[in-house]
Every structure is written in C-alpha cells, then in structure tokens.
Amino acid sequence: MDADLVAPRLVVVGGVSVDRISTPQRCGVQVLGGGGLYAALAAATRTTVGLVGLCSDHPLTAGRPWRPAVDGAGLVTLPGRHLTFDISYDQHGQATYRTDDAGDERHLHPGQVPPRYLTAAGFHLCALGDPVAQLRYATALRAMAGTGQARISAGTFLARIVADRRSVRRMLDACDVFVCSVPEAMALADVGRLVDALAWLTRSVGGSKRSVVVTDADQGCYVVAGKAIHRVPTFPRPAVDPTGAGEAFAGALAACMVEGDELMTAARYACAVASLVVEDFGPAALLQPNRQVLETRVAAMRRAVVEVGS
C-alpha cells in the first residue's frame, strides 16, 4: 500500500503491542498483539485500512510485518517502551491480565490522525487506556472536516466498564455500532443475566439508527438493531488462543459496514474472521489470510441467522 497516495476507507484507532500468552496447554507464548493490530488486519480482509495508535518498539515489531496489508502512517513509537500484555487463561477460557500497558495510551490524541485519513468512510475505536480517551476521539472525529458523515464504531473491555461505566455508556451513545462481549454487555447494563442485558441494549438503541453487537465466544453473536435481536452463530472451531478474536470481529464488522454490507451480512463475515484467529497463537491467520477458507466459512453461516427477541 502506497502511504503517500492511498487514503484508507477505514481507520482503526488502537495499538500494536507484544502479547505473552499462557493457556492450560502452553505457557508464555510471545507473539505480536494489540487490539489495534488485530482489528486492522481483520478489517484489511475486506477493505483498505489505516492504523492510528502506539506501537511497541519490541523486536517483534521490527520491519512492521503487517505491511502491506495495513497503512501504519498513524502509528507512534514510544522509545524504550516494549508495550506488553501478559495474558493468562484458565481451563474455562477466562482471562487474567498480569501486565497491561494500556495506560501508555494516555499519550494518544486526535491530532495524531494523519490528515489524509480524515476522508475515511469509517473509524473504529478500539478499547484504549480508558473510555474517556475513546470519547475524546469520537467527539473530535465527528467535528473534524470530512468526517461528519463517517461511520464510527467502537469496542471495549470489561475492566474499562468496571472502572467507568458512565463513560462507556456515553461511548455507546456516541457510536453508530458498538461491539462488546456477553460479560461486558451485562456489566454495561448492570445486570446478571444476558437476557436482561439484551433487553437493556434494545431499549438503549431502539428507535435510533444505532446498533450493538454482542459477541458470545464460540456461540457467535447477538445483533441488536431497532427493536429486534438476532443471533448469528459462528463457525465452530477449537480455540487454541482466544486472544484478539473480539478485536478482529469488531474490525471485520467495521470494514464490512463501510463497504456497504447489511449489518447481518457483516456479522456473519466478522464471525468467520474471528474463527480464523482462535486457531493458533497470535495474528498469523490475519497476516496471511486464506481467503478460500474464509469465504467457505461465511457461506456455511449464510442461512443460520435466528431472531431471538424483539
């Protein structure tokens, strides 16, 4: 991708880090990571992508191996900072973050968005160091020349909701599409059951053009739009490493939406992309995606959407 000539259709705001992952089967696997990288690489399977955020100066990022799939003109490297996330999963797939360098994202500000990115059709805001940072970006992007009609989507992390539910709810209102997991949806609604969280989200977006997509790991996702709720099952695959699947889902969904896909079609595609990610450690499946496999999985889910509530 020629960074001087091509303006991306979608801009992802998020970081590139290095993940150290431990599962019941393997301990201390070190790979490229970061929500921004997973989202951008997933989006690049469907559209042209620019990435804004912080980049680790760890040797694994040397040469920026995500080129040419992702335009990284908006990445800033902090000298001497090996941005890392140390993630441990138990036998039930529950994650514990032993090290979380997301606080470094306080250095991010909307003025770092390259001017040519401002013509993008959409922006996806990954979970940054805190929800206030996401809000700052969403507000600024809406106000900047050329971005007023752009579609804005965002994701979050459970820890961000626990720390500042009020700001995350404001972020929900600021987005065209908001993506969260089942535990995050329940925390956001401050309820203990998924059915109650979906009802709360339906009330929150009902009557507007906004929508929410709730991911449910190997069960697929729930699409909340208007007054209806639809369940989209995913392509079943054994999860070797679930890290980055949620971010990849959100990035793929955002890419489909800026390319004009209908929301349910976008959700099926995003489920298929996420199913590639969990099959191995790191984003290798996105760095060199097998498009035939991807399209086969999308086709397998084409008629599997079910309305579950209204």
Rank of each mutant, 00 (worst) to 15 (best):
H107K: 12
F85V: 02
P65E: 06
R98A: 15
Y137F: 15
L125W: 06
A127S: 14
A138P: 05
V113H: 00
W66K: 02
V76I: 14
V70L: 01
A133L: 15
G103C: 09
A121F: 03
T77P: 00
G74F: 01
T96S: 15
D90N: 13
Y137I: 09
Y89R: 08
R106N: 00
R67E: 12
R64Q: 15
L128N: 02
R81E: 15
Q94G: 09
P131N: 09
P131T: 10
T119G: 15
A69D: 03
T96I: 10
A73N: 09
A127T: 05
F123E: 00
Q112V: 10
A133C: 11
V113N: 01
A121S: 14
Q112N: 00
A133N: 11
W66Y: 10
L78T: 11
H124T: 02
L83A: 06
L128E: 00
F123W: 08
L125F: 08
R116M: 11
G63F: 10
V113E: 00
Q91W: 10
P110S: 10
V70H: 03
A69R: 15
G74A: 06
P79F: 07
G93E: 04
L75M: 10
D101S: 09
H124D: 00
R116V: 02
V70T: 04
D100N: 15
A121N: 07
A102K: 14
T84L: 14
